[in-house]
Amino acid sequence: MNIFRLAGDMSHLFSILLLLLKIHTIKSCAGVSLKTQELYALVFATRYLDIFTGYISLYNTLMKMFFLWSSFTIVWYMRYHNVVRRSYDKDQDTFRHYFLILPCFILALLVHEKFTFLEVLWTFSLYLEAVAILPQLVLLQRTRNVDNLTGHYVFFLGAYRSFYILNWIYRYFTEQNYYKWITWISGLVQTALYADFFYYYVKSWRNSERLQLPA
C-alpha cells in the first residue's frame, strides 16, 4: 500500500459517503443517475466475488464489503424509498445503460488474462467501471444548476481514478514485474472521461459559482 493508493481508496470512500449523506440525510437523489449507480452495483458484484475465494487483508475485505453494501443500498434508496425515489430525475436520466453491459461482456470474453469464470467477470467489471460514469455525466450536463453535493461526489470519484494512475506509476517503478495492461488501459479511459467535468468543476470553484456544464 502506497500513499497514492490510499489516497485513491479514501477519495472513493469519501465520494460514496457524500452520496449516502445526500440521500439518507437530505432524502434527495436529485441529479444522481440511477443508471450509473446500477452499473456500479454490477461492477462490484462481478469484481468482488473473490471475497469468497481468497483473502488479501482485513482492509481489503472490509472495503469490498463496504462498496458492495453501499452500491446496493443506494440503488435500493433510489428505486424503493418512499421519499427519495420521488426526487429522482427519471425523465432526464435516459442513458441506455444496458447497451454498455453487453459490449463490455463481449470484450471481456475476447480480451482477458485467463479464461476462467472469475477472471472473465473480473475483467468485465474493469471494462464496465471505465464507462459506468457516462450516464451520470450526461445527467449532470442536462441538469441546470448542479447542486454542490452531486458535483463534489463526481469530483471525488474522478480524484479516486487519478490517484490510482499515480499508484500504478509508483508500483511500476518500485515493484518487480508489476504490469497490468487491462487494468491500466481501462483506468486511463475511465479517468479521461472525467477531464471535461474537472475543467468546469475547477472553473466554477475558482469563480465561487455553482457548477454548470455547457449544454
Binding site: 493508493r5 481508496d9 481468497g54 481489503n60 469490498k64 488474462e113 473480473w122 490510482y164 504490469y179
Partner: peptide, 10 residues
C-alpha cells in the same frame, strides 16, 4: 507475482 492473480487493488 505475474500480475495475473494478485488482485490486491480495489
Amino acid at each position: 507475482s505475474s500480475g495475473v492473480t494478485d488482485k490486491d487493488e480495489l
